[in-house]
Design a protein around this nucleic acid. Structure first.
Length: 200
DNA sequence: ATCCGGATCGCCT
DNA sequence: GGCGATCCGGATG
């Protein structure tokens, strides 16, 4: 498989659930001074607007959430638990401030650099099987917040595609509110999917 | 294999 | 002042 064309902004101007599903198999590429890394997206979650208590936009428009109210197709990179970064693609359907969280990728390019950045990861799958882990491995930080995903250091490209029969849907994990809404998608059986057991 | 607490800090209540 | 879209290591069964 080879990286394909850059995903246009219009891709993100659709229902967030559809975008989250369709991002499976896409390639996330990150370029930093240390080198290039990329990974195939294998797990996503949708955060669907102010009425979604788990979505940061539930707090309304603030300095932190401003990217969610900006345009579709940009990155929303936020800081969590005082230590980690998580990366989202901002979406726009019916004017809602919404986004897709990238929860896991399968490394494609730059694995040596990923290992260097993730000294605690003993097995390859521990490199990028979580939203904070993949940002560490790929060098994604707040410097990339609000950047376009169509150019620059952080880009999403065509790569692979999966039929619905190869995709599993479950409730989102790691949240307190709206924890029963089925808004998490992952490639069934992929070893890079986060969580102790798939389907959790 | 599963559970639990500590780290660490920006942001909202 | 308290919590969070997390990760990691150590304890427990």
């Amino acid at each position: 498989m080879k990286p394909g064309r850059i995903i246009p902004a219009t891709f993100y101007e659709r229902d967030t659930e559809i975008v989250a599903r369709d991002m499976l198999g896409k390639l996330l590429q990150c370029n930093t001074p240390e080198g290039a890394t990329s990974g195939m997206i294998v797990e996503t979650e949708a955060y669907v607007g102010e009425h979604d208590a788990a979505c940061h936009a539930a707090a309304g428009l603030t300095a932190r959430t401003a990217p969610l109210y900006d345009r579709a197709g940009i990155a929303y990179v936020y800081f969590i638990y005082g230590m980690y970064w998580c990366v989202n693609a901002v979406t726009r359907a019916a004017g809602l401030p919404s986004a897709v969280l990238v929860r896991a990728v399968e490394p494609v390019e730059g694995m040596p650099l990923m290992r260097q950045r993730r000294p605690h990861a003993h097995r390859d799958r521990d490199l990028t099987n979580g939203p904070g882990k993949l940002c560490l491995a790929m060098g994604i930080t707040g410097a990339m917040n609000r950047q376009s995903l169509q150019r620059g250091s952080l880009v999403v490209r065509e790569y692979a595609s999966y039929p619905d029969s190869a995709v599993t849907v479950t409730p989102r994990i790691g949240i307190r509110h709206a924890a029963d809404w089925p808004l998490r998608w992952f490639v069934s059986g992929n070893e890079y999917v986060s969580g102790r057991r798939q389907g959790r």
